[in-house]
């Protein structure tokens, strides 16, 4: 990384992180939905055969972690729609600040926020009955970070591309719901009939969930974990590339 990119990224990360810290609502609201699933959906699974190694918490918590990242990060674009309306986005684009830093500063704030929420979720899950190796839990946080970087980048790109801001919310909902269902976040796809299982293999997030579930039962060298890492890195690299292109050309 050239020094100006590093400096500009740190600068913008600091600005957005301070703005987030001033808004506790924003920090804690995101964990609310996964917590509700943990309290009111988790106990239903405890005795059920889920077709995977590990108890029900080792299957559900990885899903909830990625659900948190999926919904949180895909709505990140809202903030840039507001910055555009305030004129702040153009004000920054007139300065010599690195275009990639304009994206990375935000995306890293998002990753930090969602990893923090993931930590909270795991801390609450422990007294509920979650038992998993520490390394596995840390690997899970790594996946939340990568998923956040990828989805937030795409979300910012989409927010800049859409002709009307009103279409952003519905567009994201339309994309996020099938993504959640098809990746087996709530219940593993091993329970699915053949056609659904096959279909879900086309959904990149499925590989991430499977990988975190492997890590939560202490399997660090299985193909599932490897695929998860490769897919997560690939999607994140692609998303940041798309995001930077969009930030460079963001015109009308």
């Amino acid at each position: 990384m050239p020094p100006t990119l590093l400096r500009d990224t740190a600068l913008l990360f600091g600005r957005y992180a301070r703005q987030t810290l001033r808004s506790p609502f924003q920090i804690f609201f995101g964990v609310l939905m996964p917590l509700l699933y943990l309290f009111f959906f988790g106990p239903l699974l405890t005795g059920l055969p889920l077709g995977r190694e590990g108890d029900s918490w080792q299957v559900l918590v990885p899903g909830l972690l990625l659900q948190l990242g999926l919904f949180g990060a895909s709505f990140a674009g809202f903030s840039i729609i507001m910055e555009k309306n305030w004129g702040v986005f153009d004000r920054m684009r007139v300065t010599p600040v690195s275009r990639l830093a304009l994206l990375l500063g935000r995306v890293l704030r998002d990753a930090a926020l969602f990893v923090f929420q993931a930590v909270l979720l795991v801390l609450v899950a422990l007294p509920m009955g979650l038992r998993a190796p520490l390394a596995g839990i840390l690997i899970g946080f790594g996946f939340v970070a990568l998923l956040s970087v990828a989805l937030a980048s795409l979300s910012y790109a989409l927010a800049l591309k859409l002709p009307t801001p009103q279409s952003f919310g519905p567009a994201i909902n339309t994309l996020a719901m099938p993504a959640m269902l098809l990746s087996g976040l709530m219940l593993p796809m091993t329970l699915a009939p053949g056609w659904l299982d096959a279909l879900s293999h086309l959904m990149p997030f499925r590989y991430l969930v499977d990988a975190v579930r492997e890590a939560y039962v202490g399997h660090y060298t299985t193909p599932a974990l490897l695929y998860g890492v490769l897919v997560a890195l690939g999607v994140a690299a692609l998303a940041v590339t798309v995001g930077t292109r969009t930030f460079r050309s963001a015109g009308a």
């Binding site: 500009d8 600068l11 600005r15 703005q19 001033r22 910055e83 305030w86 004129g87 702040v88 153009d90 004000r91 920054m92 007139v94 300065t95 010599p96 600040v97």
Partner: peptide
């Protein structure tokens, strides 16, 4: 960009910031 300054017709202030933090941020940018 390094050589020009621009004030847009509709301005460009972040409502989450103060006068000082915006001025400092601009210098840093």
């Amino acid at each position: 960009r390094r050589r020009i300054g621009y004030v847009a017709q509709s301005g460009g202030l972040d409502p989450q910031e103060t006068v000082r933090s915006e001025l400092v941020a601009q210098g840093r940018l």
